[in-house]
Structure formats: structure tokens, C-alpha cells
């Protein structure tokens, strides 16, 4: 029976990365909470675990900052769901956050593998 916490290898997210992952996921179009969680899990090949208890607070946070907006709609399997989508501000923020992420990855990578940095 496949359940989220069956695997032990999956990693908890770094503080602050959940917001980025949510924004990235929403760049593909409006999605509801469960869809976002699913998408993050699938795209990371089930490596990342989104704890739903933190997903919704994160969504609230983004909504409160005006990065996403939400409205009730009907999902593909004909259920009511609250769909989130990026606002213009959210799209700009995604670009900045992505750049920031790559700068971070690059910086951390240089420290961990200095031999790759120059090459």
C-alpha cells in the first residue's frame, strides 16, 4: 500500500524552500493544495516530502503576501477545491527566488566541491 511516509529516505525541506517549490509548481497554472503536494512529490521522484500540516500555512503566508491568490472551483474529478494561482507579484518573486536559489546552490557547491567551481 503506497503511502507517503512509507519510505524513510525522503528528506524534509530546507527552511524557506517550500515557498519556492509552491511558486514554481504554480507557474504551470492554477492548482489546488493536494495537487501542489502531489506535484512536488512526483517531480522530485518522491524524494521530497511535503507535510500537509506545513503546506497550508505556507499557502496562507503566500496568499497574505499577495504572491498567490485563491478561489474556489471544481477540480478535474469534479470536486470542489480551492485553487491557487500566481499573481503578477508572485511571478516576479518566483524569478527572484529562483535566482537566489541558484546563487545559493552555486555558493554552497563551491564550498563542497571546489574542483568543479573553476571548471
Amino acid at each position: 500500500m503506497p503511502t507517503r511516509n512509507a519510505g524513510t529516505e525522503r528528506d524534509a525541506l530546507l527552511q524557506g524552500t517550500l515557498d519556492l517549490l509552491i511558486l514554481r509548481t504554480l507557474a504551470g497554472g492554477p492548482e489546488h493544495g493536494q495537487g501542489i503536494a502531489r506535484a512536488i512529490g512526483q517531480k522530485s521522484a518522491d524524494a521530497l516530502l511535503v507535510e500537509h500540516g506545513s503546506l497550508y500555512p505556507a499557502l496562507q503566508r503566500l496568499e497574505a503576501k499577495g504572491l498567490v491568490r485563491a478561489k474556489w472551483g471544481v477540480s478535474l474529478n469534479n470536486r470542489r477545491a480551492r485553487f491557487y494561482e500566481l499573481t503578477a507579484l508572485g511571478k516576479r518573486q518566483l524569478v527572484q527566488e529562483e535566482e537566489r536559489w541558484w546563487r545559493l546552490v552555486e555558493a554552497v557547491g563551491r564550498i563542497l566541491r571546489p574542483e568543479l567551481a573553476g571548471g
Binding site: 489546488h32 493544495g33 474529478n77 470536486r79 470542489r80 477545491a81 480551492r82
Partner: peptide, 12 residues
């Protein structure tokens, strides 16, 4: 409501 919706989607 949103939590309910989530659980339904997950169960589906």
C-alpha cells in the same frame, strides 16, 4: 472545507 477537499482528492 479546504482540508476536506484535500482529503477527498488524496483519497481519489
Amino acid at each position: 472545507d479546504e482540508i476536506e477537499s484535500h482529503i477527498h482528492h488524496e483519497a481519489d
